[in-house]
Design a protein around this nucleic acid. Structure first.
Lengths: 203, 203
DNA sequence: ACTGTTGGTCAACGCTTGTTGGCTAACGTA
DNA sequence: TACGTTAGCCAACAAGCGTTGACCAACAGT
């Protein structure tokens, strides 16, 4: 599982740079992959540059050359775009379940969110990024689906609390019951909750 | 070995020790208070013994003398017992709301849980302690209230996910909408969710 | 008054961290 | 072939960490 980084230059929008192919792309990718894994596993402070470099089988100084400093590395490590599916197509009463399934999906086959969750808790920059993701992904959905658009932030926040709580207990704290549930069952339980937070009359 | 082990013959071991009054109790308390605050604010790694000592206005070496090492200090800092009220008195259909209110309460006027949440994410011991709390507090309630006692762990886990998610967004990540809600409103929203996780037929 | 215990400070230790700069070797042209 | 650019390693730096032990001051019991 060395990296397939070069092909990630499919024209993504982070910067306008057309990604001039460098000879070091493989190394850069290896560093990024190792960083994601370490950040996800250990959190910001305990994930040392030296350990990441060793995982990527290069010298720590390379990390500095390519990413400036530790913060820069982390920023790069979680600059992946988690695209949400077009929930506009989903019927209004299924949005809750669709949302849960989507995030469950992203979390399951990408360590980035776990890393950000871990980091967001001790590192202010991480918290901000986390906040950004949920604002960008959840708020529009809430605004479109909930009865009074003025309520959208509150409703999005409630959804975030349930979805993040699920991720916390399942992927970070690993409470046995939360780990044991299948994705399907999880969606069965949480779907209605999220749906209610989005569409129910305020209590 | 400078520890208070010998004189603990006063009775029960773990807690309720008759607390032989030492001259340094004030200092010990100051250290513990500063530690709780720092751990809650910064997490385990970034809360340094030096900083805690400075907050308590004593020398770092005192921390070592009284608590052995950093782990010992943390263990002492979160060895507060959060007593849950006798939910046996609460009518079955109000348990959800009561539970949310209770945890909201504890979280609000005691930094310990925030500290543990923060620490539990990078520190295995913290995670275990967190798990213990929810097992001891939530599982019995679930077992008493839910239709099939065999489901209790799952239901308790689901409740934990929602309650921890609330705490995460409100007290750690500080998402604006989650912070803005009053405790009352929060209970209005989350109460039914927890209630459903506890008592509804499995979906 | 003498003495052992306790509360506390000070200065240092060994180690790990992020970070830097200089060096070598391979590459890509011209 | 010659040469500038790039990729990479090595050794070291300063700072901060947890931790230790020597040392002093105040108290308590006889």
């Amino acid at each position: 599982m060395t990296e397939s980084a070069p092909d990630s230059a499919t024209g993504k929008a982070t910067e306008a740079a057309a990604a001039p192919p460098r000879r070091s792309d493989a190394t850069r990718g290896a560093i990024l992959a190792a960083a994601r894994e370490r950040f996800a596993a250990d959190g910001y402070e305990r994930a040392t540059i030296r350990a990441i470099a060793k995982d990527a089988r290069i010298d720590p100084s390379m990390v500095m050359r390519y990413y400036g400093n530790k913060e820069g590395l982390f920023a790069a490590a979680c600059s992946i775009d988690l695209r949400l599916p077009d929930l506009a197509a989903v019927p209004r009463e299924d949005v809750g379940r669709a949302l849960v399934t989507h995030f469950l999906d992203v979390w399951e086959n990408d360590g980035v969110l776990t890393a950000m969750l871990r980091v967001g808790i001790t590192n202010a920059a991480g918290a901000e990024r986390m906040q950004g993701i949920f604002r960008d992904q959840l708020l529009p959905v809430a605004r479109r689906v909930c009865p009074d658009p003025a309520d959208a932030p509150v409703r999005a926040g409630l959804c975030a609390s349930q979805i993040l709580g699920m991720a916390l207990t399942r992927y970070v704290l690993r409470f046995p019951p939360a780990v044991a549930l299948s994705g399907e069952e999880m969606a069965d339980w949480l779907g209605p909750t999220v749906q209610r937070y989005l569409t129910a009359e305020r209590p």
